[in-house]
Amino acid sequence: MDVFLQVIVNGLMLAGVYIGISIGLTLIFGVIKIVNFAHGEFLMIGLYATYLLTTYSGLSVVQAIVPVMLLLFVLGYAMQRVVIQPLLNAPHHMQIFATVGVSTFLMNLALLVFGADVHRTEVPNALQTISVGGINIVISQLITLVVAVSLAIVLHLFQSRTMVGMSIRAVAQNRKSAALMGINVKRVYAITFGLGCACLGLVATLIASQYPVFPTVGTYFVLFAFVIVVLGGLGNVTGAIYASIIIAIVDSLAGYYISLALKEVICFCIFILILIFKPTGLVGKESGA
């Protein structure tokens, strides 16, 4: 029983990572209605940036948060302006090709610049654990979970309380009507994309101590992010949080009780089944079908 509880808690802790990664993707999909296949590569950039900043310029991980988030905001803003904006009315397949192209480019650029080696961001005491009633909790994982949930709450408040946030929601509801109300849709889209990527920047600094970075690290995470975004109802932040918890616990259980090597297989099979049988996800209105 203790083992079972420990596995569940491990899953909950893992959920922090998944919430963090999928929240930006959810935001981007919910507003711009585009599936960004390069999402994982932005996380990869965030991880490299954290690694470089902490290793070579002596910043602590906490101090790296702001510069990394800024960097990713700018990159996301630019990607929306240069690549996505011209394709907003293009057929689906052109949007797929464009973001897949960006993904391929960034991944190989990282290979070119950093090589295939695995780099690890060293954070003192990162893997320290506390024990609560016989259950071990890794402190950095706990912090990740808390920050990721707070990020979701802040994002929600931002969207419901601020002018920019409300215009994002307006554009998400109806692009044309929002434009008629005098909202600069292009700017809102670019800000949204930037924000979605900035979320990844925050997550990257949080998980840098737990996950090493290498050029294809994004591919590993991005599929999980997609699983969660779809399960969470495509563009629904609350749904994404539930979905993150479900997937993380399934992941944790499958890893312990079935096989560490097959836990991803199980998650992806769930993904396939969801897309086939309930493409609207758990709580969503948007549909993949």
């Binding site: 394709l87 052109m94 464009a98 192209g101 190989n108």
Partner: peptide, 19 residues
Amino acid sequence: YANGIHGAVYGLVLVIAVL
């Protein structure tokens, strides 16, 4: 000298071709 160069070129060509 440059591992990954052809992949980067593929990615870039893909984006330019789409646009």
